[in-house]
Nucleic acid binder design. Structure first.
Lengths: 241, 241
DNA sequence: CAGTGGTCTAGACCACAAT
DNA sequence: TTGTGGTCTAGACCACTGT
């Protein structure tokens, strides 16, 4: 682990444990340099990590402060940079029911989103995910068979992401998401136990590996009363587009 | 504008205009140093901005590549780091109808989210926003009167954010959001012209000024068929919490 | 081996705010 | 004037990749 990251971890620990609590002020950068025996650039890089996560903010001429956290966590939620799927964010026992599992030929839409050729092989997986036997989400997954080989029902019953990272030794680094509300389809009503007038929260996602390859295109439809998406946004450096 | 930001702008321009298109490879960092006559750290900081936005990715030992963009924009959408509200993201003519505009005493919930005291004065604004006379969103806003003085109906009919930035000379820097689906309330049905079985996409937001002060707590309820939230997430540096 | 990006240094000067 | 964070330099060494 690089030094700036371990410094960030340590400062984070001091924030959450209350060491830096009084008045919200964090020691100035030169003081932190001395304490951690490093250059100022390294301290700044560590603090940058915390700024990006909305944990601290800086004021030129003043100092660095702890950010007031306005929200409490009141539902199961998935954050901006959560990429490892449902299994990791859930607290209880996660169970999956496989509704469909087959290999398709990519149609034009799937091919475009996965950046592969039309008629390339894609895994097509439809699963319902439960926490403590309560249905939370119904997930439609498309994955290029060439990139994610050896998928089995056992893996789908556990965690695809764990398989990709521990078995295939691939690294998941980023994702693009679109979040929208939708009426519950008949499938939603059936598997999520929803009434016809109850909506779902849909997350459409494209997920990338470290090498820039897209390994997943998916639609996750969540129960509207059990799930929310959380996001922190900064506007420090705006690029014109 | 700092040098690293203008370099990032220039590289972004070359990506979108296709100058760097072939094979997706961007010149190596030392080459960019020479071209922009700067140190390597400055080039890296410029490229970091583009990485954070999901426009490029790097592979050690290989180079820097343009990221395949999987999504097309097919609705009005608000991104992760969009903080300036509805007026800026809309393309057509934005119009507002003020349903309610008053000064309240903060109750416990509002006070906690705005980080003020119970019974402090808060503006309470309820507006419907239209684009080309089509209703898009109904917005409930709470703002501390001490921080945003001089609010008028004229301002509410235009843009609160523009008033805050141009008149009050305050800088909006970040926001925390929660995004969820909900059934349409009677108010939603009435003002967004929704049927009882049609849902809304709700965004609950806390918005911060540069000085760390919370200036807004709001609920925006969007028509489910006209709006989506977009997000790009990275997982480079994980902090344990 | 050479070429790439990742981290880190030990300074420098600037911009902003309080005293 | 002092102290804060913001930017930038000119290097150094390391880690990973392909030849």
């Amino acid at each position: 682990m690089p030094k700036y990251q371990s410094i960030a971890e340590e400062i984070l620990k001091r924030i959450t444990s209350g060491v830096y609590k009084e008045s919200g002020l964090i020691p100035d950068e030169l003081t932190l340099c001395k304490e951690f025996v490093c250059s100022r650039m390294t301290v700044k890089k560590a603090l940058d990590l915390l700024v990006q996560r909305g944990l601290i903010y800086r004021k030129r001429g003043h100092g660095t402060f702890i950010m007031k956290q306005g929200f409490k966590k009141d539902r199961l939620n998935i954050a901006n940079r959560d990429l490892t799927g449902f299994s990791k964010v859930a607290n209880g026992t996660v169970r999956s029911k496989i509704i469909e599992f087959k290999v398709d030929f990519a149609d034009e839409d799937i091919a475009q989103h996965l950046n592969i050729k039309v008629n390339d092989h894609v895994y097509n997986v439809l699963r319902v995910r439960y926490i403590d036997d309560e249905p939370y989400v119904i997930e439609q997954n498309y994955m290029p068979a060439a990139i994610i080989p050896g998928l089995t029902r056992d893996i789908l019953n556990a965690s695809i992401y764990a398989y990709i990272e521990t078995e295939l030794k691939l690294t998941i680094t980023s994702s693009s998401k679109k979040i929208r509300a939708d009426k519950a389809s008949e499938l939603d009503q059936q598997y999520l136990r929803l009434e016809p007038d109850e909506p779902v929260l849909e997350i459409e996602q494209i997920a990338y590996l470290q090498n820039g390859i897209i390994f997943e295109y998916s639609f996750s439809r969540h129960r509207y009363d059990k799930f929310e998406f959380i996001s922190f946004g900064l506007r420090n450096k705006r690029l014109s587009n």
